[in-house]
Design a protein around this nucleic acid. Structure first.
Lengths: 238, 238
DNA sequence: ATCCTGAATGCTGCATTCACAATTCAGCTC
DNA sequence: GAGCTGAATTGTGAATGCAGCATTCAGGAT
């Protein structure tokens, strides 16, 4: 997540040892075009603007985004590595179509990861970490109460990311983020039915309770259960 | 490894029953330059040709490889996503230096993945899958008997990949491959000491035995144990 | 009428070029 | 002599250009 910062810290630490690293994130972040494009195109895939199975025309899309083909091509290479598009020789990029099996496989792996995350999170979480998650959770519940789906959805994502983040395991965070990105499209479609919503909320109540009790196995169970229900939620929308 | 063949066989078998499935992979594979470069540069990092922490000069390396900067840059973007290099704004690519924590974190995740793999492999493996792994195992043991380290090392890698492949879970395979790639450099350095070799071999005996017995929990335990020892093996070579 | 051949078009893959940011070093000031 | 300023150099970031492969459609042969 903070790869760039790390590099900067390394440099700074190497160069000037005793200068306090205030850094203070006043730095102007000027992301490379290619990075912006990765995010943008990924969102377009998730939101369905680029339909699954459709071909991505470099010149055309580049023009739409107002950029040249070069950064777009670099972005497509990255997205291919993430599994969101397929790069076919001589044909360019196709938006990947996920099969039932693909999704199920991913959920199985994700489940194993969250199982691990539950354990690690309970070991590693600071009190302020837990308070932070609680804060997100309560905010989310606020939106649930008034049935405001979109902000609920965003906070939901944030909470899951937070669980992973407070494990302090960057490798875990990385692979988890990657799988989540691929599944986001599916969740985006499948999360419509209100009858599942209550169940999901109940899971979340259990999760936060387990975390506050720092009960690793219980948290793992809650997370696994949540994912199992996710499968039911999305299974028929693929 | 032969995922394409499998898919082709399925299709062919379904479509035309009595037409001999010649198919025969006569296809000319003409990988894109960018793909070749990814592999090549990754190997250079693993083998230490590109030292950890050093800066990758695009023009220079491009010239050495006899290619232009474009495919090289695309490759670097991919390697950055894999976590093998850091891309710093305006400075280009730095070969990522792994800390103790990085490696340990990765091994923890890898362990969880192999735990899952053990379970799935025992459920999914066909008899021929198991025979294949046994074949690899025996060949590896042959090299162990005569202390021929390099082919032993390669077969070792292949066996671990085979375990993952026969789970039939592509998401798992992907995540595993990625983490393995990042760790390869470390293993490459750390796998020198002969005193650990015997222990590793013993682990492998247990692994193949568990697989042949289709005993999932036992296989998971063997794999985990193997990774735990890996940590000891490599811990001081970072 | 159908199938095959081959030319034309369009798009990808890679190279080259252009623009701009970072670094370095020389010259000036204090 | 030390430190700062600014110009020159070097290297990255992005755009454009060019060659070759893939697809398509027209024309001819069977």
């Amino acid at each position: 997540m903070k790869a760039d910062v790390t590099a900067a810290e390394v440099t700074a630490a190497a160069a000037l040892d005793d200068v306090p690293v205030v850094a203070e994130d006043i730095r102007i972040d000027r992301p490379t075009l290619h990075d912006v494009v990765v995010i943008r195109v990924r969102d377009m895939i998730i939101e369905g603007t680029l339909a699954a199975g459709s071909r991505i025309h470099e010149g055309q899309l580049g023009q739409q985004l107002g950029i040249s083909r070069t950064p777009l091509r670099e972005a497509l290479k990255v997205l291919a590595r993430e599994g969101l598009v397929d790069l076919v020789q001589g044909k360019g990029a196709l938006v990947r179509k996920l099969t039932h099996k693909d999704v199920k496989d991913m959920l199985v792996v994700l489940s194993a990861m969250e199982d691990l995350a539950g354990k690690l999170a309970c070991e590693n979480a600071s009190d302020s970490d837990i308070r932070e998650v609680r804060r997100l959770h309560d905010a989310m519940m606020g939106y649930y109460a008034v049935r405001n789906r979109l902000p609920y959805y965003k906070l939901n994502q944030e909470i899951h990311s937070a669980f992973i983040r407070i494990t302090g395991n960057e490798a875990l965070s990385m692979v988890h983020t990657q799988l989540q990105a691929r599944l986001k499209r599916i969740r985006f479609i499948g999360n419509e039915k209100p009858e599942h919503w209550d169940a999901a909320v109940a899971d979340h109540e259990e999760m936060i309770a387990a975390l506050e009790a720092r009960d690793g196995p219980r948290l793992s169970r809650a997370l696994s259960n949540h994912l199992a229900e996710t499968w039911l939620r999305v299974a028929d929308s693929i």
